[in-house]
Amino acid sequence: MHTAARTRFALAAVAVGAVVALAGCSSSDPLETDAASSGSGETLVVGSQDYYSNEIIAEIYAQAFEANGFEVDRQFRIGQREVYLPEIESGAIDVFPEYTGNLLQALDDTATVTESTAVYDALTEALPEGLRALDQSSATDQDSYNVTAGFAEQWDLVEIGDLANVTEPLTLGGNSELETRPYGPPGLESVYGVTVGFTPIEDSGGPLTLKALVDGQVQLVDIYSADPNIEANDLVTLEDPEGLFLASNVVPIVSDKVDDTATEVLNTVSAALTPEILVSLNAQSVNDEDSAEDIASAWLEEAGLFS
């Protein structure tokens, strides 16, 4: 009798352990996470944009929750901000990785701040009732101007303003909206005194934009700062001392269902996530084609968080 009970206990422990381990490895199947419920008991719904890098961050949040005993329902790859923002506001999603500057711009298009802390403060003001921004991470994923290493060397370019010394005509390549954005050609002119032509390339700093830059069809391109292609193609990101670009740090946006323990979990993740780490996580997705689950669990293990 005694031994039987012990055996049963051991079996149960193994089963729970196995489920927790499975949940740690993670999959998008919500059924697998059922047994790991020593946390608040409520299931936290984690969403993500239809953007691979955002999905990796969301997966890190999800696995961090699971490692701390929360149940997680993954609603990834929802789409663009217009689609998911109402879902967060309605309470259908509890946790969403966001970017301070871009989200601020979406919530308040009259905002003029660009510096990281100011953007974060403005964002906490602008968020609708019931939503909070937790600590922002030092990792950013924001617009940045890039040139080839050869071009940077030829004209001795470090900052955006150095482009004013280039005597050949400059063409900027990027999504069509860049042409009218405050950090596009008008901002380059007014803030840095740099005059550029514009060529639309509608792949958001993707392979076509890269090719146009490398082929010399354009000299300057807008690529997101966490894009591993910047490093892989030996591009030089021009510094932006005047704050032309809106700072956009990674930040979790959460609903009231996220309690103090869950908040602590996300703040720990955000503190550990640096710009370099975000680039390397993205590189694992772009170059090695690893899944978000694998990338997230490998990093959490490597960083020694929650172990």
Binding site: E82, N175, S176, E177, E179, T180, R181, F198, T199, P200, I201, E202, D203, L208
Partner: peptide
């Protein structure tokens, strides 16, 4: 307009991207 400054697609892409 996906890869050039040409045609009615310019309005479409810009409109969609800037809401």
């Amino acid at each position: 307009a996906y890869t050039s400054d040409f045609g009615l697609g310019r309005f479409l892409f810009r409109g969609l991207k800037t809401n």
